[in-house]
């Protein structure tokens, strides 16, 4: 990471601090003593077998999931029961879901302006201008007046990314953003994400797109059975994984 100009945007300021985080679903221990710090501008890819708790972990960061033990601080706001804190954090953290979760009863433009208008109290005209700016960035300004059901999966996911960006988040969470897409459409979504990474957005991305991880990640985290098994730079992670479990996993996903 030397000649990339974006790296200059990085600071040592910690934007997410997770320590001693534990979560149970009933008796099932989903997350075990997670410690993780994320710096401003850092791009992190989280991978691991299904059921390893990787989605649950990033969903804790914007409190879509509660946890029972430990602490989680996002940009100076500690996530506790307090609704005020939760809403503050959610305003700063954007999330992109596996199944897009666009609002089917609203047009694309309305999907994008809803957050700015109701949460940030932005005037409608201004919100629409912002929305159009981001729709252009994800390269589908001509779809603004259509409804989500009329768009392809790849287009819907790009709209979902634009919807999060309209809230000008400091952190973006991606929960398997390409897993529900046809192979032809994965690239158009990844391209948008790569562009976003190059602009210095702090990103946590649960994905199995190892090409993407190699290209943009500062750090790759491998999780299994609720624990962080290994974390390293992509180069080290893919070329010389330290733990057996990681080697097994990489063999399975890279040699099929």
């Amino acid at each position: 990471m030397t000649n990339n100009p974006v790296n200059r945007l990085k600071t040592d300021e910690e934007i997410i601090t997770i320590s001693g985080l534990n979560k149970w679903y009933g008796d099932f221990h989903v997350l075990k003593d997670i410690d993780l710090t994320v710096k401003q501008g850092e791009r992190i890819v989280i991978c691991g077998p299904s059921g390893s708790g990787k989605s649950t972990l990033i969903r804790c960061i914007n409190r879509l999931e509660e946890f029972q033990q430990g602490s989680l601080v996002v940009d100076g706001t500690e996530l506790i029961e307090d609704v005020k804190n939760i809403e503050t954090v959610r305003r700063e953290v954007g999330m992109v879901f596996q199944h897009f979760n666009l609002f089917p009863h609203l047009s694309i433009l309305e999907n994008l302006t809803l957050g700015p208008i109701w949460v940030q109290k932005m005037p409608k005209a201004e919100a629409e201008a912002v929305a159009m700016k981001y729709l252009e960035r994800v390269k589908i300004p001509d779809q603004a007046n259509k409804y989500p059901g009329q768009l392809s999966g790849g287009q819907q996911q790009r709209v979902a990314i634009a919807r999060s960006l309209c809230m000008s988040p400091k952190i973006m969470l991606f929960d398997e953003p390409t897993s529900a897409l046809d192979p032809e459409m994965i690239k158009e979504v990844l391209d948008v994400m790569i562009e976003l990474a190059e602009e210095g957005m702090t990103m946590l991305c649960v994905t199995h797109e190892m090409g993407f991880a190699k290209k943009v990640a500062d750090r790759v985290i491998f999780m299994d059975a609720g624990e962080i098994v290994e974390q390293n730079t992509p180069h080290e992670f893919f070329d010389s994984p330290q733990v057996d479990r990681t080697q097994q996993f990489l063999q399975q996903i890279l040699n099929h």
Binding site: R63, L64, R90, R91, M95, F97, L114, W118, S164, M167
Partner: peptide, 14 residues
């Protein structure tokens, strides 16, 4: 779908 609630929550809607 649950995803609709989650999407609304993640935007910070009350």
């Amino acid at each position: 779908p649950q995803g609709q609630y989650e999407a609304a929550d993640s935007l910070g809607l009350s």
